[in-house]
């Protein structure tokens, strides 16, 4: 196995392009090193991207934020401006693993690991986040929900990697929230996760909404039908009930060691309503 720590993005893509199937990008390593523990796992090449300038920065741009692929999640929570504008995304990122994991894990890695239960992904999808991809043929930018293709599978092509996550400014009267269900208070993989982003009209009704569901399908579900149930409402009880019902309906979870189908379908609705309330309140204060 080879370990490389290139200094430029071009070197990363060149290494990945010339490497075999068993080539991996290393940012925080909190998923990769766990996989390496497994006797059945083999890697030929690991490309550490942390030496690249800017890769560990959160940058305020004219119309949003760019979060470098090597920014540890703990740094997101320490960024006051980002936390103010995208509290739901930051909360989701800060829910991943322990303090120790927070010091290393990244939202780009969380996305590329392509686990259906990734905490930051529903929040990013709800936020309309984009992934900026660098590859041998240049750069391209796609919505984050286009990256995971199923458990452990991504749409990244050979030689490509995510260099940054782009979060647009949400505009006035907006708020977001992420909630997940875990059996303990920390350290668990989400049994269900829900991200909600809302923008209010001037009259206080919901002008636009995005709802994204985690751990209830092979990949994150952007539940547009669910979002529609609350658009135009002031999130009164019927709207919340409808939101919950549709979220349950569009979920296609499996039963596994972490939860049953019934449990996941039921709780995804409960959390959607709760997350929507938080997002609504935040939008109202915005």
């Amino acid at each position: 196995m080879r370990y490389e720590r290139p200094a430029t993005i071009e070197d990363v893509t060149a290494l990945l392009a010339s490497g075999g199937e068993k080539s991996f990008v290393l940012a925080g390593g909190t998923d990769l090193l766990v996989r390496m523990k497994n006797d059945a796992f083999e890697a030929d090449l690991i490309v550490d991207i942390k030496a690249i300038e800017g890769m560990s920065d959160v940058t305020r741009t004219a119309d949003g934020f760019e979060i470098g692929a090597a920014v540890p999640c703990a740094a997101l929570g320490e960024n006051a401006e980002l936390s103010r504008v995208w509290p739901g995304v930051v909360e989701a990122a800060n829910l991943i693993g322990s303090t120790q994991i927070q010091g290393r894990c990244t939202i780009s890695g969380n996305l590329c690991n392509a686990s259906p239960a990734a905490d930051s992904v529903p929040a990013m999808v709800a936020a309309g986040a984009l992934a900026r991809i660098a590859g041998p043929d240049g750069r391209r930018t796609v919505p984050v929900q286009d990256i995971p293709q199923g458990p452990g599978k991504t749409s990244l092509r050979k030689g490509e990697f995510i260099e940054a996550i782009v979060l647009p400014d949400p505009g006035p009267r907006s708020g977001d929230a992420y909630l997940r269900f875990i059996p303990r208070t920390e350290m668990d993989i989400a049994v269900v996760g829900v991200g909600v982003q809302l923008t209010l009209a001037e009259d206080g009704s919901i002008a636009s909404a995005r709802v994204a569901l985690g751990a209830v399908g092979p990949k994150v579900i952007e539940a547009t039908e669910a979002a529609e149930t609350i658009i135009g409402t002031r999130l009164d009880q019927p709207a919340l009930d409808a939101l919950a019902a549709v979220c349950s309906e569009v979920s296609t979870p499996i039963a596994d060691k972490r939860g049953t189908v019934d449990f996941r379908k039921q709780v995804v609705g409960v959390l959607a309503a709760r997350a929507a309330k938080i997002a609504y309140q935040r939008a109202g204060e915005d």
Partner: peptide, 17 residues
């Protein structure tokens, strides 16, 4: 590591450079 607590089992020795 650089002021952040981490699990040393999830850091490569090479990364300590």
């Amino acid at each position: 590591m650089d002021g952040r607590v981490v699990c040393s089992c999830l850091v490569l020795g090479a990364e300590a450079e």
